[in-house]
Nucleic acid binder design. Sequence first.
RNA 1: GGGGCUGUAGCUCAGUGGUAGAGCAUCUGCCUUUUAAGCAGAGGGUCGAUGGUUCGAGCCCAUCCAGCCUCACCA
Length: 503
Amino acid sequence: MEHGQTEDLNDLMRRRREEYHELQQHGVQPYAYEFPVDAEAQEVLASFSDDDPQRDVAVAGRIMTIRRMGKASFTHIMDHTGKLQIYVKRDEVGEDSYKMFKLLDIGDIVGVRGFVFRTRTGEVSVHAKEIELLAKSLRPLPVPKEKTDEDGNKVVYDQFADKELRYRKRPLDLILNPSVKDVFIKRSQLIRSMRQFLDGRGYIEVETPVLQPLYGGAAARPFVTHHNALDMTLYLRIADELYLKRLIVGGFHGVYEISKDFRNEGMDRNHNPEFTMMELYVAYKDYRWMMELVEEMLFTINKAVNNTNSAVVGGEEIDFTPPFRRLSMFDSIKEHTGEDLRGKDEAELRAAAKRLGVELEDSDGPGKIIDEIFSERVEDKLIQPTFITDYPLELSPLAKKHRTEQGLVERFELYINGQEIANAFSELNDPIDQKERFVEQASLRARGDDEAMTFDEDYVETLEYGMPPTAGLGIGIDRLTMLLTGAESIRDVILFPTMRPEK
RNA sequence: GGGGCUGUAGCUCAGUGGUAGAGCAUCUGCCUUUUAAGCAGAGGGUCGAUGGUUCGAGCCCAUCCAGCCUCACCA
């Protein structure tokens, strides 16, 4: 795709290449080897004092604006902390340097040595004594114009706002829309804080296979690949669950993994084919214990990211202060629809769905009907953090039967802002029960449900050695990031979201 | 997969059938504290692609490609 690009150079790019050669002819190396930076934009601005205006600094960054006025010019450079104005005067930097400077463009990266001062119009700037080209930019950078109006509001003209281009050309997006970087800094803080939380409790971070001979642990269609030397089909993991629980059998008391999972399904605002999941398994604990851990973890993480007890999403303020509300699935449906589905058979459930205007497939069993009603009528009303507990058994082939409620499993999902953020259960550790569940899944698959779980004999065999009671948890990192940063699309929290190739 | 919208200069966008436009960016000239700097001038286009209708298509029609929004399914 990049071959032959020299033929397609438009005038702007041709011009920059000419400048590149011209600079070389004047003995200027267009790509320097290093520059000893000793100050950053934000800090220079913050620490300036009119009483002591002669501080010398060496700063470096990308040229974002240039205003040339004959024998003197102003330029803004941007480093990783922000923008800083540079004053370049011919009589100060010298004739050769000023000639070099005139060959520079928006997008070029420069190093500047000079002293900090305040201009006549009041902007703290660096008065350049030396300016040095560090990297020539050969492609035009669509830098938007900015103005600060009388009320101090920043007005941006010709913003780089095309979503397709922003996702395809993320480096440009990061340069031109600096607030994008904040989201990914927060994402990093989120993951770091989660690790600290889990490490602090002594859980071990592990790595399990991405390439799996059998995929499992969730209901989803996989990506399929092939290993040449073994001549076998391998699947990209859809979840880590079964491997992590093997490690609990192996004697780890608590393991977690922050992993990329892959699901071969539709893409939209909430789904990317590859996404990041944290899964945690802790021996001798159940799902009730896990609720408390989740509350505490999310409160801690949000505090680390947003420095408050809450986050704002879509105009709603989400309060992360524990404890979160706990509500059984049946009670949540009763609360939001008036229908009490407890103990109802399939015909009664279908009648309730009809009353509520929830459409069903003929093949939907009782568990699926309850889930449909919940999804349609309850889910999006759960704005503040709410644990929905005790799910129908058919929907949860890896969860343990409820200790008192017939037909249910000990499972919870945490809903925040109408979205599922966490999924957890008391893990099924009875190998005989587990085998029966897999058989049930296999029959669903035979009936054409291609999201039904595959029968993992090796996993059942592992359970037969004995797995302690275990609590398991999965948290979607991308969605949690969306929640904590107020992002509206998963593509805004993934640096390089999956895109169809151009052309 | 269904529905809606979009694709024109490097960027943001006008352009309802008759010689492709604006602002910014770029280039030339002037300008030594400017800040959407300013003034004067210049260059820049396979109008997403292919086919069709027409004397004539950026515009109308069809198909395709890509994207966004939305609904359905999924974390």
